[in-house]
Design a protein around this nucleic acid. Structure first.
Lengths: 339, 339
DNA sequence: CCCACGATATGAATCGTTTCAGCCCGACGG
DNA sequence: CCGTCGGGCTGAAACGATTCATATCGTGGG
């Protein structure tokens, strides 16, 4: 089994031409039965594996789509990736998952990598509000679908969730619980999603005699949540509830509250966002706003497959917007007044 | 901007030959300063992006490594991926992350995909004990590093953790806490890691007048942990402690215990494995056995880069084994006897 | 004054596929 | 018996880069 076998080795062993071998692989119905069997046997015998780079060079099209997520450490995006992978495989495509970690430079690097690979298309969760990544893709002529973000100007497909509505859902729930002094962890974050959730919360609070207090964060992970938590606990008067821009922040908040010896929801009610699996398993199960993560990934991959597949010329860009759903758990339980 | 520019378009615009353009890209020091500038300008002007498949076809080597993990839903593997990505980028390589979800068929599919792509090499967390994936890679002549598993027969590099030692650590800790009736969630799972952790626990318990009770599970996720939890609560007499093969199982166990109105650690002490970030954020912070996940990923990618890089002929396979570390938290706090 | 040499630039060969125009041949209609 | 048709197969031309043997030119040494 010296060097890897090439198609011409298969042809020689099977006693046919390379064209025929290629046909057996790609259009078996055009080849005679006996020949087909001989070629298949030769392929088997030599352990032949087609070289995708040669195939791609000649045929012009790749079988890989790139998926660039904001944060693989967030189970929400892992679910998105799972959904995308499912749909991609169903369409005979592979997925290359990369993690921009919200760094614009990394995003640009990975998009350049995708471009060199001539991927079939890209599923992108943009790291900035300006859409520089999307602009680069458009400039390069790479088909793409925006994930977790509306496509501005309808020049591409997108899959997103109504984040403003989700924010309103969360804040409205806290209002109903009697809270009037509510903190928002996420502050004026550059991520569109965070800004939208905050905006939704503000809308819900408008005219309700309630205030939203911003807590800025560096990242959107558990550590940032802990940090925001210790700051929140120093506020006077202390908010009675907090809405966190995602569940990781909420989990960190929970830890900080516990570390300070306070109780949830008695001393502080908490609402998260995403409803990741760990929200339900938390110290106090978290109320959260659920997004259909897998379905988003699946839908995005399907749209990309449609756009870049046969008949893609007829493709019209679509903006799919899912509705978020409030999942109430103990972290916002209304506590009956003592006595 | 018509069709994408090719190298010959750049050559024409810059007024040089294609060979020179190639040199500017790959060996700029061999090109005169003026020419270099002209070519760079032409590249910029045309938005030229090199076609990696053509490069790879001619040069024979890919710039991508494949990473196939057991379960992307487990933050442990996400950390491994993060570490691998870091090291890969440092070596100028891209990483294609795929998820076998412990399904052998999916593992085989992805390895076939990697083979067609002629990836530089593969980082593999095998889905079975027999090593069929590794065997396939060896047959195909694809360099690979085993991750989270010792390479049998030293015919490849590997990065792993002493799971037997880790299991002993966990069980020993429970013994010290006075427990004699200990459940193991993971049972006779086909995964080597699970079997090793169980074996380590058994060794620690040997001759100590303690018993280990196996609870079988389907998966290794939170849902499976919940399921095992409800079974455990039905056992008579009930174990006083449980060692879970990973933290996801432990989190599920915790939920089940809470749902039944029992307390941790008073009614049941719990030890997990992996020390994922969410273990510390759990309902009751989980005692866990920590593995250096990112470092494992980084080391694995570095070894692969060394093996497949220039001078790789001198490469000698190495088995790197990390030591696990017990992190004690509240879920195994020794409860002072009442009164 | 000539030659050798280093520094640059050239362009053709090459990588492993796919694709397509064309060849062969047996069957079938006229 | 001939022409045509079409199924099966062949062989060579792409695809877009890299690489290498070769050409060119200016320069410094002999």
């Amino acid at each position: 089994m010296g060097g890897a076998a090439r198609i011409k080795d298969v042809a020689r062993v099977a006693g046919v031409s390379v064209g025929t071998v290629s046909n057996v692989i790609n259009r078996p119905e055009t080849v005679g039965e006996g020949t087909r069997a001989k070629v298949r046997a030769a392929i088997e015998q030599l352990g032949y594996v087609r070289d995708e780079s040669a195939r791609q060079l000649r045929s012009g099209s790749s079988r890989i789509i790139g998926l660039l997520v904001l944060d693989l450490g967030n189970p929400f995006f892992v679910s998105v990736a799972r959904g995308a992978e499912q749909a991609a495989r169903a369409a005979g495509l592979g997925v290359m998952v990369c993690n921009s970690a919200q760094r614009l430079a990394d995003e640009a690097d990975y998009l350049a990598l995708f471009a060199e690979q001539r991927v079939r298309g890209v599923l992108l969760t943009p790291a900035d509000a300006e859409g520089s990544g999307a602009a680069a893709l458009r400039r390069g002529g790479v088909p793409f679908v925006l994930v977790d973000r509306l496509a501005p100007g309808l020049e591409a497909c997108s899959v997103s969730v109504d984040d403003v509505g989700g924010g309103a859902l969360a804040a409205g729930h806290l209002l109903e619980g009697g809270h009037r002094r509510i903190a928002f962890v996420g502050g004026r974050h550059r991520l569109q999603q965070v800004a939208d959730r905050r905006r939704g919360a503000l809308q819900a609070l408008a005219g309700r005699d309630a205030v939203l207090l911003d807590l800025e964060v560096d990242g959107l992970d558990v550590a940032a949540g802990r940090d925001a938590g210790s700051r929140l606990l120093g506020m006077l008067p202390r908010p009675t509830a907090v809405f966190c821009a995602n569940d990781l922040l909420a989990l960190g908040m929970l830890q900080a509250v516990f570390a300070a010896g306070l109780r949830v929801p008695e001393d502080l009610a908490i609402v998260g966002y995403d409803d990741i699996e760990f929200a339900a398993a938390a110290a106090v199960p978290l109320t959260s706003v659920r997004q259909p993560a897998e379905e988003m990934g699946r839908t995005a991959a399907e749209m990309l497959a449609e756009e870049t597949g046969p008949g893609g010329a007829a493709h019209r860009h679509r903006q799919v917007v899912f509705e978020p759903e409030l999942v109430v758990r103990r972290s916002t339980l209304v506590v009956p007044p003592p006595g």
